[in-house]
Design a protein around this nucleic acid. Sequence first.
DNA 1: CGAAACGTTGAATGGTTTCAACAAGAGTGG
DNA 2: CCACTCTTGTTGAAACCATTCAACGTTTCG
Lengths: 244, 244
Amino acid sequence: MTPFANSPLTRKLSAFVALSKAEFDVLERLHQRRRSFVAGRDMVHQGQSDQAAYILSAGWVCSYKLQPDGTRQIVDFQVPGDFLGLRSVLLRTSDHSFEPIVEIEAAEVLKSDLLAAFSDTPRLAIAILWAASRDEAMVVEHLVGIGRRDADARMAHFLLELGSRLALVGMGSREGYDCPLTQYHLADVLGLSAIHVNRVLRQLRERGLVTFRDGRVSFEDHAGLVKLAEFDAAYLDQSGPPLK
Amino acid sequence: MTPFANSPLTRKLSAFVALSKAEFDVLERLHQRRRSFVAGRDMVHQGQSDQAAYILSAGWVCSYKLQPDGTRQIVDFQVPGDFLGLRSVLLRTSDHSFEPIVEIEAAEVLKSDLLAAFSDTPRLAIAILWAASRDEAMVVEHLVGIGRRDADARMAHFLLELGSRLALVGMGSREGYDCPLTQYHLADVLGLSAIHVNRVLRQLRERGLVTFRDGRVSFEDHAGLVKLAEFDAAYLDQSGPPLK
DNA sequence: CGAAACGTTGAATGGTTTCAACAAGAGTGG
DNA sequence: CCACTCTTGTTGAAACCATTCAACGTTTCG
């Protein structure tokens, strides 16, 4: 096993594609330029045009957009194994900001490194683009949730989705997972007020479904929660990238 | 001028990149396989895995997701010049459905044609991927709107965004544009009830901002509407794809 | 100790939905 | 041609979900 066989990104991709030794090695090379960032200070600002992307290896990040009136909408969270700013590398300036929620570890990936990796190992390129496409599917699902689910189902769905994502990199299970988010983060991602988030959490707890407390999400009735959220993980556990 | 210099897609891309003769020709070739579809019947179903994409040349389409409870959330509309199902060609099965809103004209693009075009004219590839990335930015902006704007601003923002998109292909101006959507479509895209859409439209009309009537959107106070929606077209009129 | 961040709760307000009803036009079959 | 239905648009009233305002508790940290 290569030293990075346990890097979260490798784990995630391995869940869907059998990677060759050469592909492992290229992934390993992409992890070379390690950096860390403190919590709370933006890594990338809205409008900034930056040529670097990151592979998150430890910690949580959120990507968000600020409104003129001061409210913010979190578009997505990144957890270990996720790419960060992939789009802005390949295509254009970022139109949203990235903020580490806790201190994080990330590998910086330069545009040139990425393009080189892509031409060396096309299958890896497809696997990575597939992961990016999965991120997009999550944004769409998120849109559906905010548009058409009430606060309870929204919260339930969100907590379940996070659970699935974390399970893929070995950081969560059907029992629950560690989660550094505050109720303010939940409010900003779900399009609710922090106060209402508090009430919704209380209600879910009193119904014996989930407990969100002290940085830990505990599923007490996983099946019940799935039913409440009408959660169908199909958009996450797709059949994988079209290799071969 | 080539026969397709006026195809909406060519117009759209030309607004951001100066296309060479060769690139024009490749775009022309992509428009060969013309098809039409009747209104109301899905072109692609959720979950279907289809190898074809389409370039929409006339008419409107909506892409949406159906919820288990029967409600639907429209993710985006496609207007002439837009790609349809691009992602499902390159990457994976579609996770939402496409429904023509009126009878439409589209050019079918096979995976092989697209890949050939990409390798023949890399700049065109980048231009097309840039357009795809712009679509993504719209989905994100849409998410922000549903999460953090009230019904009035949401409606105003949506009507303005559509106006900008249509103006790019010569189908709209600061005065307004033709629009085949029903109030139910507006409800499903904005995450509102059709009844409330009706009230919001009435209010915007009575405030002298915009009139939505008989298949026509008329801006009566464009500046006022921009202000109400806090509409900033930056995410649409980006500096263009990173060519050169 | 005081300040700041996060969590918690109650009461009032308000935006949005639901229910119910009706109007107008298009298309259909008798 | 008419009656019929279906789709779309419109409006009022009641109910409800979520927000805002206000207050207070807890923990952490300088």
